[in-house]
């Protein structure tokens, strides 16, 4: 029996890796992957608490979240494609036209 804290630590670690990726990477693709990591960290949390409380609804929710994440990736890839068309690059620090 793995204790609850281990799951939470795993989730926190995955989330921090995601945040680190978002803050340091310039490529939009890596950006998207990092965001996925953060989302799945939250998913781990949901599953862990569901298991801990003996209630299956959290796990069912996570299935939905995963489906949603797939849809989100489709949107994100679309955005990246547009980014590439407009700036000939997918470096997010180049696209700075939406500011004052």
């Amino acid at each position: 029996m793995v204790p609850m804290e281990y799951y939470l630590l795993l989730s926190a670690a995955v989330f921090c890796i995601g945040v680190f990726g978002v803050l340091t990477r310039r490529s939009a693709l890596l950006f998207l992957m990092s965001v996925e990591l953060m989302l799945n960290a939250a998913g781990i949390n949901l599953v862990a608490f569901s298991w801990f409380h003996g209630n299956l609804s959290g796990q069912a929710f996570t299935l939905f979240v995963m489906a949603l994440a797939a849809a989100e990736v489709a949107v994100g890839l679309g955005i990246i494609l547009t980014l590439y068309r407009n700036f000939d690059d997918i470096d997010v620090t180049n696209a700075t036209t939406m500011r004052w």
Partner: peptide
């Protein structure tokens, strides 16, 4: 103050974090 809105998405993410 408006100068902090520089359009670089990483900076926004930093500020959020």
């Amino acid at each position: 103050i408006r100068r902090i809105q520089d359009g670089i998405v990483s900076h926004y993410a930093t500020m959020l974090t």
